[in-house]
């Protein structure tokens, strides 16, 4: 009797040890990846990275033009995607909360949320690059906006659904029309959550490479004209890392460190904002 129980206990311990091992295994990769990234990235980090253009093979230079390109494309993508996403989320949580179409949109939006980003690149290539006849920074921004929209829709809807109905009813009882209730009551209550969603979307697109490969393409030179191919940090990392030149590879590591630092700090910021919003 006793031996049977101790056998069960032993079995339990063995499996639980596996589970602890799994957690250690997961954390191991995080430590390995981040430490090699910091080690290799810091080696090439200097002031000139932020002040000089991408170099020709074998020359010295920095990452100024891809950094600026990435900032412009990301800003434009957020400027296009955020209003659409917030409005769509508003419809789903407010006007059309019980519409049948809202269920369909929620389902489709969840699929878009995790659709492969290279498909988005192909889509924008077909609808913008082919008709325009050339690659452009604008097409890159549209591709990233397509990725921003589902993220913002999801968080906006979730956050608006959390706003207590009594607040809406109170405002309606004072004679406020629905648009007024939404814009002055619901949006304000859900503000922190909606901003979190936008930050998460920015974090998501900052590292995206695949949708930019055949929309914004790349550019070795200074370019802030949205109608021409534009360099971006992820695409330059892709190109430089796969090149045989050591200077380029070193710059790729530095760029990778910059992107990871930006993405991880954005998501930590979003997380703290979200937990603060939840405490209220």
């Amino acid at each position: 009797m006793m031996s049977r129980y101790s056998r069960r206990l032993l079995r339990s311990r063995v499996w639980l040890t596996f589970s602890v091992g799994a957690a250690a295994f997961g954390l191991l990769w995080l430590v390995l990846i981040l430490s090699t990234l910091v080690w290799n990235g810091l080696a090439g980090l200097s002031f000139s990275v932020f002040t000089e253009m991408t170099p020709p093979p074998g020359g010295a230079g920095g990452l100024l033009n891809p950094i600026i390109g990435s900032l412009i494309i990301t800003a434009l993508a957020v400027a296009i995607g955020t209003p659409v996403g917030i409005l769509a989320g508003t419809y789903m949580a407010e006007y059309g909360r019980f519409d049948r179409i809202t269920y369909a949109i929620r389902f489709i939006n969840d699929i878009l949320l995790s659709a492969p980003s290279i498909i988005v690149g192909l889509f924008v290539y077909e609808i913008l690059v082919v008709p325009m006849g050339h690659f452009s920074g604008f097409a890159g921004a549209v591709a990233l906006a397509v990725i921003v929209i589902p993220v913002v829709v999801r968080t906006t809807e979730d956050m608006l659904l959390l706003v207590p109905n009594q607040m809406r009813e109170a405002a309606s009882a004072l004679g406020a029309p629905q648009w007024f209730v939404i814009s002055r009551v619901a949006y304000r209550a859900a503000q922190a959550g909606i901003i979190t969603g936008v930050l998460l979307a920015v974090a998501r697109i900052s590292g995206e490479t695949a949708p930019l490969l055949f929309t914004a393409l790349n550019n070795q030179f200074w370019s802030i004209n949205l109608n021409t191919p534009m360099p971006s940090l992820p695409v330059v990392i892709f190109q430089f890392a796969l090149s045989p030149y050591e200077d380029w590879q070193r710059l790729a590591w530095t760029g990778a460190l910059l992107i990871t630092a930006a993405v991880l700090s954005l998501s930590v910021l979003a997380r703290t904002l979200a937990s603060k919003g939840g405490e209220r």
Binding site: G26, W29, L30, I33, L37, A203, S206, G207, E208, T209, A210, P234, I237, F238, A241, A252, W253, A256, I259, T260, V263, L264, S267
Partner: peptide, 12 residues
Amino acid sequence: LLAGIPSIIYGI
């Protein structure tokens, strides 16, 4: 955070 690291970082 493992999910937050951009895929190009995994690549390089």
